[in-house]
């Protein structure tokens, strides 16, 4: 039995294998529609979610399985003070695989070490979100044809943006990646991302404040939301939330084949006027999330 709580638990070969499977699912969906017959996935969402939960549930349903679960902590025994470990041991009596989202960092690790069935981290606070990373990688593969020799701009909340940490960790294992990390000083990438991934890997990166200056060299622009729910102090959130807003005029110097990504939801950091630009990939990215989760569910269930 194996779980996935951190993208680093997958080898490059395994990630490539998942992407290949996802591409095959896209090409031959019928081939996969009975793979999870009579299997159940429990989606335990202690935090609100639209895309991730529905993506997991639709992935399981499209594989012929079923989905059970809850979509807020208030709707579970967590409201009565039940621990994550006890909830997981209970849910494992009903489900073949579990996807968990929790506001506390490390909750998915606690779930995985207490579960007799595979656990997938669907986001643990500002920490990790490996299936978003797999979604991002599938999107880059489909949009850019591969992962090598890309200049990747990541913009916004790089401190609490869990998708950012996982993406940097995963992409860094491919060659020729350069990062331009665009954020206000208060929201720059945590030290551990630099200390454990970028610096020891000799991966070129620069930390800048100005999005427009960085724009011309980017192959990928990964926008993120400043996450209100991660701030203890609302004044800090209000001060930082509008630091970067991508509008059509800021794309004037961008490459014609730039790939604009966003894990969504967005608030106002990408103007809706960008949605009709062919370089806007974020809704295609959402769709890729379902396919890669189908591939992951099959891998963890061994079907």
């Amino acid at each position: 039995m194996r779980s996935l709580t951190d993208i680093k638990e997958l080898t490059v070969g395994e990630i490539d294998g998942l992407i290949e499977t996802a591409l095959d699912i896209i090409a031959n969906p019928k081939k996969y529609e009975q793979r999870c017959d009579h299997k159940k996935m429990a989606t335990l969402f202690y935090e609100p979610s639209t895309r991730t939960r529905l993506s997991f549930e639709s992935a399981m349903i499209e594989l012929g399985g079923n989905a059970i679960g809850f979509s807020s902590a208030d709707a579970s025994s967590a409201a009565k003070g039940e621990s994550v470990a006890d909830t997981i041991k209970t849910v494992a009596c009903f489900a073949d695989i579990i996807a968990i989202r929790h506001p506390k960092e490390g909750a998915a690790h606690v779930a995985a070490i207490n579960s007799p069935v595979p656990v997938i981290n669907a986001g643990d606070g500002g920490h990790n979100h490996p299936t978003q990373t797999l979604t991002d990688l599938l999107t880059i593969k489909r949009e850019k044809g591969g992962f090598e020799n890309l200049t990747v701009g990541i913009c916004g909340d790089l401190k609490f943006g869990r998708t950012v940490h996982s993406l940097i960790s995963a992409l860094s294992r491919y060659g020729g990646i350069k990062y331009v990390l665009i954020s206000p000083e208060e929201l720059c990438v945590p030290e551990y991302v630099k200390d454990e991934t970028l610096i020891p890997g000799g991966i070129p990166f620069e930390e800048v404040r100005d999005l427009e200056k960085a724009m011309p060299e980017l192959d990928i622009l990964y926008m993120t939301r400043v996450q209100k729910e991660r701030f203890f102090n609302e004044a800090d959130y209000l001060r930082l939330k509008d630091t970067y807003i991508l509008t059509p005029d800021k794309l004037k110097e961008a490459k014609p084949d730039l790939c604009i990504m966003h894990p969504l939801p967005r608030v106002n950091e990408i103007s809706v006027a960008i949605d009709s630009d062919s370089r806007a990939c974020y809704f295609r990215q959402v769709q890729n999330g379902k396919f890669i989760r189908m591939a992951l569910i099959m891998k963890l269930l061994g079907v």
Partner: peptide, 11 residues
């Protein structure tokens, strides 16, 4: 880290 799971699940 106040956001760590160990801050709320002290066992």
């Amino acid at each position: 880290n106040p956001r760590c799971i160990t801050s709320s699940e002290q066992e």
